[in-house]
């Protein structure tokens, strides 16, 4: 598989990591996706995707500070890397390019 390849769900999760910044961890991302795109996603799926993105080098992670919530466990916070950002940008441009190629429908044609 091409290393540069980014799946649809991977792209969504990567974008959310970018949006959430310091608060980008598993649950928050699930919530954010629900809120912004209205899609119920699985926590485990998000985790797996995050690890895969990490393998690909688009995000990196560190453990956040401990709180009393979560039974004292720390959050694993994810951060978009430069490569990830470049990837997101490239995807956006690609999509815009492609969109431009579609003959725009005119109302009269309908």
């Amino acid at each position: 598989m091409n290393k540069e390849y980014l799946g649809e769900f991977e792209e969504l999760v990567l974008t959310m990591v970018g949006i959430l910044q310091e608060e980008a961890y598993g649950n928050a991302i699930v919530g954010e996706i629900d809120q912004r795109v209205g899609r119920k996603v699985n926590l485990s799926a998000v985790h797996v995707t995050l690890y895969r993105l990490e393998d690909k080098g688009y995000v990196k992670s560190y453990m956040g500070g401990s709180t009393n919530a979560r039974g004292g466990r720390r959050k694993r916070i994810f951060q978009v890397t430069n490569a990830g950002l470049a990837m997101l940008r490239a995807r956006k441009e690609q999509q815009v390019q492609l969109w431009k190629l579609i003959p725009q429908l005119k109302m009269s044609a309908l």
């Binding site: 961890y25 926590l43 453990m63 979560r70 466990r73 720390r74 959050k75 694993r76």
Partner: peptide
Amino acid sequence: SLIEGIEGDLQEQFE
């Protein structure tokens, strides 16, 4: 290496 993050998330969801 993963357990803390996952368990935390699950706990949070549970609460």
